[in-house]
Amino acid sequence: MRRFRSLLIPGVDKKLLVRDATKLLPDPARRRFIAGGASLGALTLLTGCDVSDSFSAENLLTQISKFNDKVQAAIFNPNTLAPTYTEADITRPFPFNGYYAEEDAPDIDAEDWTFEVRGLVDNKKAWTLEELHKLPEVTQITRHICVEGWSAIGSWSGTPLRDFLKLVGADTRAKYCWFQCADVDGYNSPLDMETALHPQTQMTFKFDGKILPRKYGYPMKIRVPTKLGFKNPKYVISMEVTNDYKGGYWEDQGYNSFSGS
């Protein structure tokens, strides 16, 4: 690593570089917490971080990852639909996945819950679950692909996000829909507007024909079959339509932000 560092960026102000790179590093306490073994999936993938030992390597890789965001946005075809499957293809049981154990998943009372809409929208009203359930419903059976590599096929029902964006008068020229979630660590994730307007991107209220169970994100999940699983937030409490890149729970820790499938 040391040799790599000296080869890569000669003449760069090391102090500035370190300062920039440090900003990119995840909170070590959070990482220790995760590595401590909250989730089954995390056990195999989070055992430390060698990359952060080399600031300039991390910096270079981050720049390339941003370049890859642009490449993927260019590859993304808004008219290309994710392949759909039949009922018989559904993976049963569909795996629970999170950075926390299933019993630690948010336990939300619909009475206390509202979906807040903020930012570049005409109507900033908060929505109750009852109101959202009245929106037109579509169902998709698509493949969920995890950043870890595994995949599972599920059936999700809800309303297309693009219809909802139209309903609340969102400025669809904005760059992102930024979602925030109810879990302890404040999961959040930005979704680029092109993907938010994709016909299969869905505000999901049902899994496999039944009200979304707690383990899959009750009361609302955003289902994005053109993205990796971690870009499909669960237990969603708010959406902000914004031109600012606000980062995300996993994105800030190094996962590629676009992560399109």
Partner: peptide
């Protein structure tokens, strides 16, 4: 070092 690093 971990998955995100490997992916990068």
């Amino acid at each position: 070092g971990w998955l995100a690093g490997g992916l990068l």
